[in-house]
Design a protein around this nucleic acid. Structure first.
Length: 684
DNA sequence: TTTAGGG
DNA sequence: CCCTAAA
């Protein structure tokens, strides 16, 4: 059987005010072709895109298209696809041998038209409304995967279908056009009520009010909405009363199967056609470039948990102190977000079935085996048979995935633009952090990837209603301890962990190099230029003006963590908000020391700003205060015995110069003072 | 914003 | 490195 899952990144009812948005009709008419490059739109667009609904639809003969949010070109990890544990992939291969087939729709991937221009007709020309153009930077990796998968199929039809689907316009990311076949299927698709945002597969379902809500039927036009909640942090909560805590998240109620989505949405804001909207803008925007630059910084605390966080810009080198008792500074923002679900995942809706009775321990294999699987109830078998007789294909459609809850703190003095960027970064972090897909059946996670759909009962008609998908941080597995962390701590989990696998985008590297080369002072020995190790994050600066410098890195926090925090008490939260990140320690290299010494020799002490400008202007992470401090330590180092020195040894020659320069300028300073003494006396 | 120093 | 009083 074929399972088709489509992820539709819709901009559900989301409209960006500042930029002309193509209306659905307009798009259809092709009148709106303006390429949106406004960065400010990106955050919202992406968010809206991600914050969609999950629609599962079952159909007789369809392909299974899987959408993923991962973007490898952006430096995001797309490991899931290649992970043997990947349910989708695993099942794919399995099905292939058993006659089942999966067609993956890479739509949601950042599909680059460059990958296959021919196969990706220009949306504006194809007459498909909302068809998106393409990202210029995305890679074709996804495609490879898709093709690979398709190739694995024994059925040609499926394969061809898959190919088509691959470029389907369903996913905005694909930037491709939806195939006619797909459209047909779409029309035929049966929409299932969305499943509410599920927090914990196991623990939260009961307590989650949302889950209690009866599933509603949503139409394809149904739109999820994205809302921003702005709350003032209690004055007593932290010294930074003027800081704002901004929480952006999907509205559960709205996003989950609202019966009158349009109405609601409209009330909320103008509705734009979601389904047809494409993400190309987002992808095209520089934000995608920025996104990869986010860097996860982890540090293990006394509890042994990891505290990842994102840093960007020179002012963003915040770190959690070992003790986590860092005072909260206004300019040091702390961003966090959580994923909803105990597993820190997002799940789709449409759950309504019984238990996973159909699941058994059968190893992946032939369909024959499946039928004969032990533990399968007769009723189930019967249904399956019937199902098979009709058609052995199961079509699942995931309209969209919900975006994890985002928790953001930003100064109220921050600009709207920075807020948008912040949100964007948060979303990017989530998406780029590495996501994996989880399957939830009747409220229970199906962890055994080797099971077939038949075995799990997913293929059953009634089961489809209970089938859900989740987006969860792939890092959870790799970093188990995090979630078990002492909740007293600030950032228990790391959703972004996967980012550690981030590989610099060649483009970025190139950029960095060119930047250096373009710098006229690079050739100046005295001008210390460092190819910032954090070039990725810091390069973000270029796209952000200093007024917005206050934007802080985002720290996604798995729902688990958030829940724990919530349970712990409000005080936790407030405490958390007070935490400031300490800049990462970056010992001065000998080269830097030399540059510093040289500059001080010439400029003297007390002119740190000039020193900075002169020799460290390109080292964004070195502030004049840092240089001053370093000089201080250098002087101290030079005075102590070599045995007492630590860290990378500084050439004695340099230390000697330090002492010399220090004494010289101290003398000069004294002379100046002496000189002024008389003046003072005269005045007196 | 910079300096200058203590932490 | 951080924090800040002072300038």
């Amino acid at each position: 059987m074929v399972l088709q899952k489509r992820l539709e990144f819709g901009f559900n009812g989301y409209q960006v005010p500042t930029t002309p948005r193509a209306t659905r009709s307009a798009r259809r008419r092709g009148t709106i072709q303006k390429r949106v490059e406004d960065n400010q739109l990106c955050a919202f667009d992406l968010l809206a895109t991600v914050a969609g609904k999950l629609l599962l639809e079952k159909e007789s003969s369809v392909a299974y298209s899987n959408a993923s949010t991962e973007k490898d070109k952006c430096g995001f990890v797309k490991k899931e696809w290649e992970d043997a544990n990947n349910p989708l992939k695993a099942q794919l291969s399995e099905e292939g041998s058993s006659g089942g087939r999966y067609v993956f729709d890479l739509a949601s991937h950042a599909y680059d038209q460059n990958c296959n221009p021919k196969e990706s007709p220009n949306p504006e020309n194809d007459g498909h409304s909302g068809s998106a153009s393409v990202l210029t930077t995305s890679s074709c990796s996804e495609k490879f995967v898709a093709e690979k998968m398709v190739n694995a199929k024994s059925n040609k039809e499926v394969g061809s279908f898959a190919s088509k689907v691959g470029c389907s316009g369903y996913a905005e990311f694909s930037g491709c056009k939806l195939d006619d076949e797909i459209n047909k299927l779409k029309d035929e698709q049966k929409m299932f009520g969305k499943v509410p945002f599920v927090r914990g597969t196991d623990r939260c379902s009961a307590e989650d009010p949302v889950n209690a809500k009866p599933p509603a039927v949503v139409s394809s036009d149904d739109s999820a909405k994205f809302s921003l909640y702005v709350d003032h942090i209690p004055h007593s909560a932290s010294p930074c009363q003027d800081d704002l805590k901004v929480v952006s998240r999907d509205d559960d109620e709205n996003s989950s199967g609202c019966t009158h989505p349009r109405t609601k949405t409209k009330s909320f804001r103008p509705v734009t056609r979601i389904g047809d909207r494409r993400i190309r803008k987002i992808l095209a925007s520089k934000y995608w470039k920025v996104a990869p630059k986010l860097k996860a910084d982890r540090r293990s605390n006394t509890d042994g948990d990891l505290k990842p966080m994102y840093r960007n810009k020179r002012n963003s080198y915040k770190r959690l102190r070992s003790q986590m008792n860092i005072p909260f500074k206004k300019r040091k923002l702390f961003y966090g977000n959580s994923v909803s679900s105990s597993d820190g995942c997002i799940r789709s809706d449409g759950i309504s079935c019984s238990s996973e009775k159909g699941i058994n321990g059968d190893a992946p294999g032939s369909s024959a085996k499946i039928h004969g699987a032990a533990g399968k109830s007769s009723s189930v078998a019967g249904q399956q048979t019937a199902f098979h007789s009709r058609d052995s294909h199961v079509k699942l459609r995931i309209k969209s995935f919900r975006v994890p809850e985002l928790f953001i703190e930003i100064p109220e003095t921050a600009t709207v633009g920075s807020l948008k960027r912040t949100v964007m970064e948060a979303v990017t972090a989530i998406l780029g952090g590495g996501l994996r897909v989880g399957v939830v059946l009747q409220g229970k996670k199906v962890r055994d990837d080797s099971k077939t759909l038949l075995q799990t009962g997913i293929s059953q008609d009634n089961q489809l209603d209970a089938l859900g998908f989740t987006l969860e941080p792939s890092s959870l597995k790799s970093v188990p301890p995090i979630c078990a962390v002492d909740s007293t701590d600030v950032l228990p989990c790391d959703v972004l962990q996967p980012l550690t696998r981030y590989l610099p985008d060649p483009t970025e590297v190139q950029q960095g190099i060119s930047d250096a080369l373009l710098d006229p002072q690079v050739t100046n020995l005295g001008n210390f230029i460092e190819s910032d190790n954090d070039s990725a994050p810091s390069s973000t600066n270029s796209s952000v003006d200093k007024s917005t410098r206050d934007s802080k890195p985002l720290v996604p926090i798995p729902e688990t963590a958030m829940e724990a925090l919530a349970v712990v008490s409000e005080h936790r939260k407030s405490k958390r908000s007070e935490i400031a990140q300490r800049r990462i320690r970056r010992p001065f290299s000998v080269t830097e020391v030399e540059a510093l010494v040289q500059a001080v020799e010439k400029l003297g002490t007390g002119r740190w700003r000039d020193v900075k400008l002169r020799s460290f202007d390109n080292a964004k992470h070195r502030t004049y205060v840092d240089l001053k401090d370093k000089w201080k330590t250098l002087v101290h180092t030079a005075r102590i015995s070599p045995q007492q020195r630590r860290g990378e040894p500084v050439p004695q020659e340099l230390l000697d110069r330090v002492l010399t320069a220090h004494s010289y300028w101290s003398q000069q300073q004294t002379k100046q003072q002496v000189k002024q003494q008389p003046d003072t006396c005269l005045l007196l």
